[in-house]
Design a protein around this nucleic acid. Structure first.
Lengths: 218, 218
DNA sequence: AATATCTATCTTGTATACAAAAATATTGAC
DNA sequence: GTCAATATTTTTGTATACAAGATAGATATT
């Protein structure tokens, strides 16, 4: 399945929003964007339409599209839902998971650990995402898997800042191991609780997220 | 927030898919649709793009868009996720719900019952959806609420056939009352379990859904 | 000076035009 | 008659043109 030009543009605009080039509330001008990407307005409009659907921008008919970063409350809500979805994945997976998948989770954790040692943040993020992605898949529910991936993608830029917390990496790795242990035991309740706590924004994580939102607002 | 033309068209095409005018796997021709709706291809394309995002049609670049009704497995998966999402709503709501909302749920149930007595199916569906919508809202998590509404909307045509089951209506009403009772007690576990069972596709409901899929395939 | 209204300009939404890729038909070879 | 290669037609994707709504600025009025 090849990508359309407008899909590529949508991803690039998304990136520009995430990296702060376009800030919250800013209007995205169709002609400006078409000049920037050296295409006509048509693919730009399609891209913006897609972003509006995903909730990253808001579309007001005849007025334009505006960047719409989630505020602190919405962000907490999204993390809460993510935690519940992942907990559901874990609950399902505890009954259905294969030995091969357990092994795969352990391998990913090892690579994760190696990345921590090497202080390779990008590699860590990648392996971390992979760990979660395996869990989604092992829920045995493809639709649930897709929904999780969608929300994970949406939360990605915020999740990354979460992990920058001092000492969070080792703690996070420990939680991963706990999750795998619960899955191995087939203890669905423990697995669900472990991942819920792992994903949820609480305690120190909460303050860090709030701090990051403040700096991002400037 | 007024609607764009392409939004209206998207909803109409959606309706045409639901009512069987366009069947599964069928290609949706842009020019044919533009003639049918007496507009140019532009708003048609925007509508199709939106439907592709929501998953109702599949878009293959340079080849067209095709109706993509969920198969039995995907449908079961979607109902499973819906059940979990609603269970989460109930769990949250059990702690947060207000007396006024409890009253609202009871009122809606009364109107639901009245619709059953009057054999007014449309009215029943409406009130039933309202019952669930109140629950989503009372979760206290707007993002969760929106996600639930989105999936509810997607499952709507299938949910309706679910309820046509003989005797299902009264059973369903009883379950509603059980849910409210659990919420009133603040028993989050009971509320979650009650709504999960209420939404889940199992037993008789499963066979009915399969039967409906077979007839729809013809 | 402040506000209201009219006008000019800008921007979006829709229609049409064009280019490139895919599907289909046609012709020719075996 | 079947298969392959090529030509034709369709159909999508993109660019441009045009129309109507929204914004902003200028002028007039109180």
């Amino acid at each position: 399945m090849e990508q359309k030009r407008s899909d590529i543009i949508a991803n690039q605009i998304e990136e520009l929003i995430f990296d702060g080039t376009f800030s919250d509330g800013e209007r995205l001008d169709e002609v400006q964007l078409s000049e920037r990407f050296a295409v006509s307005r048509t693919p730009i409009r399609e891209a913006l339409l897609r972003l509006a659907q995903s909730g990253l921008v808001e579309h007001f008919p005849r007025r334009g599209v505006f960047v719409r970063q989630p505020g602190p409350i919405e962000l907490l809500e999204m993390f809460e839902v993510m935690a519940e979805l992942e907990a559901t994945c874990a609950r399902f997976a505890a009954a259905r998971i294969s030995d091969a998948a357990i092994q795969e989770l352990n391998d990913t954790n090892k690579r994760c650990n190696a990345a921590v040692e090497a202080k390779d943040a990008d590699r860590y993020y990648l392996e971390n995402e992979r760990f979660h992605a395996i869990l989604y898949k092992e829920s045995g529910n493809s639709f649930l898997e897709q929904e999780c991936l969608r929300l994970q993608r949406r939360l990605q830029p915020f999740r990354r800042t979460q992990l920058r917390l001092r000492g969070r990496l080792k703690q996070s790795m420990h939680e991963h191991e706990e999750i795998v242990a619960a899955l191995e035991d087939g203890d669905s309740q423990a697995a669900a609780d472990a991942i819920r706590d792992h994903v949820a924004v609480q305690g120190e994580k909460f303050h860090h997220l709030m701090a990051r939102l403040k700096t991002a607002a400037e």
